[in-house]
């Protein structure tokens, strides 16, 4: 075996047998932001055989403070995060197979790209995607590791389908909250703490040492020095619609709506997602925009243009990010006007 893994092979918990398993296994990472880049880097260094990483966003300068794989050049080139992540991961360890997906998690995409994963790591930044991931992971019986961080607070929990409570069980226990967007910022150490806790659980699952799994919800506030390890097993709800006896996968059904719009937390940006299976012909779209004398830059992965002072980023899968607005109705109108310019390029 290649001696680049010598130090972790010497570690009893992994050993030669464990390393062989790591080299053959497949981990999915949902999100290539702060958590996703840290998790991906550690896994590729550890010799993971197959890594599938999906992200819907592109690299910006404000990401560089905590998103470890990216460089100023990636931000300057407006590279999709999944593409930039793949490039850097392959430079770190060319032996791992990295599958980068620029897009939004959906039922179909999960079935195509993630259903063979041994473990999935949550590195998203919103509960909507997490609840969809929760439904999908339970449907395909894949363990997944919740992770979240904000300010100096972080938490993580390992969800094993049909054994532990699922994310819906936990969320159902919490009082309804209007506070969907918090602008507190985040410091890199808590990101690294959460990612580290997630990766060590991934290792245990990959080497099939389930007895070593932590089993508790782990919470940390690094600034105020609060540490909690909470047993939440009692929250497993037999009537849960996501994981209970009569499961209906409610968030998976919800995700199939035709168009979905959302305001990205703290970014004054509207995200528009069309239905699944849409594909834009980017070169045709670019021609149409340039015909209207709109500035248009195509980096091979996405188009960016500027309309009435609003930066608009269009992805191949028909998604758009419209900056400097949080007016979803207005953003949708602008989006439809732009999409109509290239309407013949919409293909199913």
């Amino acid at each position: 075996m290649n001696n680049r893994y010598d130090r972790q092979v010497r570690f009893d918990g992994i050993g030669e047998q464990g390393q062989k398993k790591i080299l053959m296994k497949h981990v999915g990472i949902i999100g290539a932001g702060a958590l996703g880049t840290h998790v991906a880097e550690t896994l590729i260094r550890a010799g993971i055989g197959y890594l599938s990483i999906i992200d819907r966003d592109y690299v910006e300068y404000s990401n560089l403070q905590r998103q470890c794989l990216y460089t100023e050049r990636d931000a300057g080139e407006v590279l999709p995060k999944a593409v930039a992540a793949k490039k850097h991961l392959e430079q770190i360890n060319h032996n791992g197979h990295v599958n980068a997906i620029v897009g939004e998690l959906s039922g179909k995409l999960f079935s195509d790209k993630f259903s063979t994963c041994d473990v999935i790591v949550d590195a998203t930044d919103n509960f909507e995607t997490r609840l969809l991931l929760n439904d999908l992971a339970i449907k395909y019986k894949i363990p997944w590791i919740f992770g979240g961080c904000l300010g100096s607070k972080g938490l993580t929990y390992t969800i094993i389908p049909d054994e532990t409570p699922c994310l819906s069980c936990l969320m159902n226990h919490m009082p309804f909250s209007n506070d969907s967007c918090d602008l507190s910022g985040v410091i890199a150490p808590i990101v690294e703490w959460v990612a580290t806790q997630q990766v060590v659980e991934v290792f245990k699952l990959l080497v099939e040492d389930h007895t070593a799994l932590r089993g508790t919800l782990l919470y940390e506030d690094m600034w105020t020095n609060e540490h909690i390890s909470m047993n939440v097993q009692t929250l497993k709800n037999p009537l849960c619609l996501s994981c209970g006896r009569h499961r209906t996968h409610p968030y998976l059904s919800e995700s199939k709506k035709r168009y979905r719009t959302s305001v990205l937390c703290g970014r004054d940006t509207v995200h528009i997602r069309p239905e699944e299976n849409m594909k834009l012909d980017m070169s045709y779209m670019k021609q149409m925009l340039m015909k209207d004398e709109l500035p248009c830059v195509d980096n091979g992965f996405l188009l960016h243009t500027c309309i009435d002072g609003h930066r608009l980023i269009l992805f191949q899968d028909g998604r758009a990010l419209i900056h400097n607005t949080s007016d979803m109705k207005w953003a949708m109108k602008l989006y439809m006007e732009v999409i109509r310019k290239g309407r013949t390029c919409l293909t199913e």
Partner: peptide, 25 residues
């Protein structure tokens, strides 16, 4: 239980743990 927050009385010396479900990533 979330439905008992209003009625659940505190006593001197209680150990309370509050986990914030932060969602960033």
């Amino acid at each position: 239980d979330k439905n008992k927050y209003d009625s659940q009385a505190l006593s001197d010396g209680d150990r309370i743990e509050i986990v914030h479900f932060v969602g960033g990533g």
